[in-house]
Computed example of a mutant assay.
Amino acid sequence: MTGSGDGNGSGLRTLPLGDGLSARAGFVVLGAHRLGELVQRRPAGITGNQWSSAIREAYDVVVCAEDGTPRLAVEIGPETPAGQRAERMKNAVAEAVGLPVLRIGSPTLRAAEHGRAVVAYVIDARTYADSVAVVEPGEDPPVGFRDILGRLPDGRTGAVNDLGALARAAAVEAYVEGRLVDPILRGLHVHWTDGPAEGWSWLEVRPGACLVERVTVREHRFSTGLDTARFAEDLAALAIGERLRTMDAAALVPRDELRAAIRGLAARRSELATGFAFDHLCAD
């Protein structure tokens, strides 16, 4: 697994792998590391102020090759305005040393609870994409990682790599138990031009009141091998599944407010890299 930009990594340290959380597809997954632990010295073009700010910042998960060379740094968690300046500094250093970064912004998902599973999923997706990258003339395009069919935990046949599959099953169960008025987990996804992919997912809990999640995904010098926007939507569905366990009624969003927000996305379709394919959700 290499980044889409594939810098030579000459500014990166070789990390000890003794504290590896897990190994997968020839990579070792480590826990949180400060950027200063990953980079040997201040890169050319980085100011002293940028450097001193960035090296104190941490990544939640670091994926290394078997020799300890960092191949991917991952962040999972809330996006806050207060952290944007530090994020820019950190991105500048990572870019300078060729460190690929995957940033998942979510108010619900956390590295401690979800990081290992999400990173394993990304490694599998990228490994699969690399394995089917070459298509011989006359061959059909390979099935995408997300669309591989198999047996689901409930015995049905479906997309085995759908991160939201358990949440969808939990929604049906909650509906049967009378905790939801609609069992269908709905969603949308967009990709902003020169910006993040964004996925939304929601459930109608009470008439006119919805549980809503929004997740952003940013890839820097890295590609998951997935449709990034669809990946963001699946992560949003995963987050809905987490929130179903506690069901905070105070956090429900009026359906009209949700629809207005979707219409707001539709009105900005010119800013989207792949257009807006969800006009049917804007109707009353």
Score class of each variant (00 low, 15 high):
Val132Met: 07
Gly150Asn: 06
Glu173Tyr: 09
Glu136Gly: 04
Pro183Cys: 05
Val135Met: 01
Gly150Thr: 02
Asp147Phe: 13
Pro183Trp: 05
Leu152His: 06
Leu152Asn: 07
Arg179Tyr: 05
Arg186Ile: 00
Gly155Asn: 08
Ala129Val: 08
Arg179Met: 08
Val132Pro: 00
Arg146Phe: 10
Val172Met: 14
Pro153Lys: 12
Val134Arg: 14
Asp140Phe: 15
Gly138Phe: 07
Gly158His: 10
Val176Arg: 15
Pro141Lys: 10
Asp147Ser: 13
Leu163Thr: 01
Gly164Val: 04
Asp182Arg: 13
Leu185Asp: 00
Gly144Pro: 00
Gly178Ala: 11
Val134Glu: 08
Leu180Lys: 08
Ala170Pro: 01
Val160Asn: 07
Val181Pro: 07
Ala170Thr: 02
Arg146Ile: 07
Gly158Ile: 09
Glu173Pro: 02
Arg179Ile: 02
Tyr128Gly: 08
Phe145Arg: 11
Ile148Ala: 05
Val160Ser: 08
Ala159Trp: 04
Ser131Leu: 05
Gly144Asp: 06
Ala174Val: 04
Thr127Phe: 04
Asp147Cys: 01
Ala133Glu: 09
Ile184Asp: 10
Leu185Trp: 04
Pro137Glu: 03
Ile148Gln: 14
Asp162His: 09
Phe145Ser: 09
Leu185Asn: 00
Val172Glu: 14
Leu180Thr: 07
Pro183Arg: 06
